[in-house]
Amino acid sequence: MGTRDCGHICGESSPGIGEGGKTGEWRNSRPVIDEDKCTPARKNKPTCFLCWLFCPEVTISKTIPLRIDLEYCKGCGICAEVCPTRAIAMVDEEKFLC
């Protein structure tokens, strides 16, 4: 079965998640949130969410508790940097190998 059936006559792309693959595989270290220090988790109120705002990969959800999509998180560490209560630690992936 050839590619003709896709119907494109030029390079026309449609939106999709994971265009570059499972970019979580790029990680050297992963963010781990300490819910005792995370302000929205502690107060159970929608507040702060700076990590959500500053994630370049759109992998942190604006929810309580915050969830990080590890399939696509590249482990850049910006969330850990911006967290005002230092609730996020970047932990080496080695620790999570089974």
Partner: peptide, 21 residues
């Protein structure tokens, strides 16, 4: 700022790219 996202996860930019953000 709106909560709606216009970027989808899984792009090919370097980890931590300022352009992406």
């Amino acid at each position: 700022l709106t909560e709606k996202e216009y970027l989808l996860p899984g792009n090919r930019l370097c980890p931590g790219c300022a352009l992406s953000l």
